[in-house]
Write a protein that binds this DNA or RNA. Structure first.
Length: 435
RNA sequence: GUGGUUGUAGCUCAAUCGGUUAGAGCGCCGGACUGUGGCUCCGGAGGUUGCGGGUUCGAUCCCCGUCAGCCACCCCA
């Protein structure tokens, strides 16, 4: 029997679980500040829910199998199809815009690497039913505040922001046909990882996918950085101003929220080739040594494709793996909370029933309590209390009992005082609340 | 799926040119310590050196395979 989990899967021992809980609790808190409601769907879905959106090739990356009823099913690799399915089923009855978030475990059958496992948790946020740019800005702001809540600021994390409508207008202006656009997106997406020779091939017309001079102009578009340069380029192409209008509104809104300092306008953010129709963004650590922390954008056609309901939508996902690595790297992991607040210790074996009674009384009062499960000398019991990071120790011995009292120890302050038995719960609560 | 690289105790690491019983720190368990914790001291448990094969008188060390981790590619919803 091996003690290791399957490749790409993780065990969460208490320390790791505490960190995971910290991520989830922070995510929930911030999402609720934006009025987003939590939901969840099944971890197992019909296989076709994914092949319909991504094609048969996706099956190679899925944990799919046939269930005992002969159905082709898959563990979920992402949440968007489930969202689309659920929203489509009840879209008519829901007030728009719909603000939903979910935290769930996803599964992808891929070779694991740093920041990429076969099992991971993802926060998925979607705003549905709003086509305007303030919806985009709302979602981008949420993504930024989600990482800010962990202590990451603009010097440590960057949003790279693009817009498919802007990119398309500029590429058409550069002489690309509608048919060449997918190839162009693929090139732009890969540009950073390409070898210099490959880039030269495109610049010097050795790439047969593009016409004479087109490759070089494509690279010029990809090299644009910052809104002023993008805006200037848009002014020179037909329909450019109209194509750039929503993007300008998004930037203006983020500026008004005071979050513009996080944003880099960068048209090389393409995000796959899939279903994005407008704004596209990714969050990265400022040093760019890790994979993307989060990614998303506007996908106005997807809900119609998957669920048959015509709703514009904008959303993103953020995973626990890359964000977790960044937080560890930056020393932003909070200490795990203590398991108990109070330790009850008895001096002699005769005190044991009183320890049990007192411990239960304190538990009834809502306190987190532990005591020694067998008779041990007091020093040893206090050592355990200390290891457990208890705030308070309650010591009860024959002399105390004779007086109807117990000793209350402040374990951090090294102070101790006698307290009447009847007052123990209240006094301990007060000490714990002082924190 | 392809290529490269690394695997020694729960964790971090050591072990001479291939040499005889694989060590240390931390952690864990017990004791010093039967009315007071963090310190200290003493003792103990814990290893198929990832696994399998080969070379050798002898392998943690060299070779092959395999599994796992890491890195790059593919992919990245």
């Amino acid at each position: 029997m091996q003690t290791q989990p399957l490749p790409g899967f993780r065990d969460f021992y208490p320390a790791e679980f505490a960190f995971r809980a910290h991520l989830f609790e922070t995510w929930r808190r911030v999402c609720r500040r934006y009025g987003f409601e939590e939901f969840d769907g099944p971890p197992l879905e019909p296989l076709e829910l994914y092949t319909a959106k991504s094609g048969e090739e996706i099956v190679g990356q899925l944990y799919n199998f046939e269930d005992k009823g002969g159905r082709s099913v898959s563990l979920r690799p992402e949440l968007t199809p489930t969202v689309a399915r659920m929203v489509a089923a009840r879209a008519g009855g829901m007030k728009k815009p719909i603000r939903w978030f979910s935290i769930g475990q996803m599964f992808r059958y891929e070779r694991q690497q740093r920041g990429r496992l076969r099992e991971f948790f993802q926060l998925n946020c979607d705003l549905m039913g709003e086509p305007g740019p303030l919806g985009d800005a709302e979602v981008i702001a949420l993504a930024i505040d989600l990482v800010r809540a962990f202590g990451l600021e603009a010097d440590q994390v960057r949003v790279r922001l693009s817009d498919r409508r802007v990119l398309q207008a500029l590429l058409r202006g550069a002489g690309l046909t509608a048919e060449q656009l997918p190839s162009a997106y693929a090139v732009i997406d890969k540009l950073e990882r390409m070898k210099p020779e490959q880039v030269a091939d495109i610049r010097e017309d050795r790439d047969e996918r593009f016409g004479p001079g087109v490759g070089a102009r494509l690279l010029e578009v990809a090299a644009l950085r910052g809104w002023p340069d993008v805006q200037a380029a848009l002014a020179k192409v037909e329909g450019g101003a109209e194509a750039g209008a929503p993007f300008a509104e998004v930037l203006k809104a983020l500026e008004a929220m005071g979050l513009a300092g996080f944003v880099d306008v960068d048209l090389t953010i393409v995000r796959g080739l899939a279903y994005y129709t407008g704004t596209v963004f990714e969050l990265f650590d400022a040093g760019r040594s890790l994979r993307a922390i989060a990614g998303g954008g506007r996908y106005d056609e997807l809900l119609k494709l998957l669920g048959g309901v015509d709703l514009p939508a904008v959303g993103f996902a953020i995973g626990d793996v890359v964000l977790g690595e960044l937080l560890k790297e930056r020393g932003l992991v909070p200490p795990a909370p203590a398991a108990i607040e109070v330790f009850v210790a008895g001096v002699t074996a005769e005190d044991q029933p009183h320890v049990l009674q007192l411990a239960h009384l304190l538990r009834e009062a809502g306190l987190r309590v532990e005591y020694a499960l067998r008779a041990e000398n007091l020093g040893k019991q206090l050592k355990l209390a200390d290891t457990r990071s208890a705030r308070v120790a309650v010591v009860i011995g024959p002399d105390d009992r004779a007086r109807g009292e117990v000793q209350l120890k402040d374990l951090a302050g090294k102070t101790q005082r006698a307290v009447a038995l009847a007052r123990v719960a209240d006094d301990v609560k007060a000490m714990v609340a002082d924190g």
